[in-house]
Design a protein around this nucleic acid. Structure first.
Lengths: 98, 98
DNA sequence: ATACTAATTAGCTTTTTTGCTAATATGAGT
DNA sequence: ACTCATATTAGCAAAAAAGCTAATTAGTAT
């Protein structure tokens, strides 16, 4: 499952989706409009992100609202820090900020 | 360049290589011995990591010593934190620890 | 020069990912 | 029921990644 997260992060468009979502929830179509790729392509990127649990989807009548799953992103960042020399990586992010 | 880093991180074997390298520099053959894949395959994983600047290679006579490039890993972690709601992501890691 | 070890590069096949168009679902409005 | 808008799924083709064996390079040592 860690693997699907890093795989999902491997595509620039998907990282950009997360960057947009960072500022707040967004509708699928709203997101798709920001990219050059076709709608179905964007839809699949969203599916990959959802599969990795990096985002969540919520129906709002006709459309679908996506939002970032912050904790999974934090876990990924923590995992990366865990690959660095010191033992920072095992710390919780909040502990590290104190 | 950011892209090659995340792409490099997408493969579990490569993350594990980084995890091993975290504890200290290692010879290529030494690393290869830890995995089931063939030597050439491992060699390519190392090449991908080197290409992303996540590791550096140094000849030691007959063999090649690899070590993690901590700063690139930090940058990646910071980039991920940057995708999270607050504005933590723009901070330097050292600043965040104070 | 030859032989030996360590590691990479070449060449190839298989698998995965990407991205398109066309088709389908889901829900709202009339 | 019909239609429109939103979004996903199907199905396909092209591109990229992964992993193997065989061949090659680089360095050491005899």
């Amino acid at each position: 499952m860690q693997n699907s997260v890093f795989k999902a992060l491997a595509h620039p468009a998907r990282r950009q989706i997360l960057a947009l979502l960072r500022k707040g929830p967004r509708l699928a179509g709203d997101l798709a409009a920001e990219f050059d790729s076709s709608w179905p392509t964007m839809s699949r990127h969203l599916a990959v992100l959802k599969d990795a649990d990096l985002i969540t989807a919520e129906r709002q009548g006709n459309q679908i609202l996506y939002r970032v799953n912050t904790s999974v992103l934090e876990d990924a960042a923590t995992a990366l820090l865990g690959l660095i020399g010191s033992d920072n990586g095992d710390d919780d992010l909040k502990e590290a900020a104190e």
